[in-house]
């Protein structure tokens, strides 16, 4: 059941992608119509703010973490088993 569903989704990969992008567009459109009751933050009033926030946050996290990893934190997997501990 699940296998067939996944296989079908994978066959229609392009369609899934288009559908996903449409969903994102719809979300922004729907955001224009949402009544704003609990406004805690200026971002709550700008339609699409949180979408942009999510996209930027995701990219920021990936880029900054990977950068930190490559310039500083990454070590081979047997790092702690080696006696010298050289990179």
């Amino acid at each position: 059941m699940i296998k067939r569903l996944i296989a079908r989704l994978r066959r229609h990969y392009h369609g899934v992608r288009v559908a996903f992008c449409c969903l994102l567009g719809l979300l922004i459109l729907a955001d224009l119509l949402v009544p704003r009751h609990h406004v805690y933050f200026i971002g709550d009033e700008i339609p699409g703010f949180w979408g942009l926030f999510g996209l930027l946050a995701c990219m920021l996290i990936i880029v900054v973490s990977k950068w930190l990893g490559h310039v500083w934190l990454f070590r081979p997997e047997d790092y702690y088993e080696r006696r010298g501990g050289k990179k």
Binding site: L24, G54, L56
Partner: peptide
């Protein structure tokens, strides 16, 4: 929005 756009990213 946050979640789906994270997915896009």
């Amino acid at each position: 929005q946050i979640l789906l756009f994270t997915m896009l990213g």
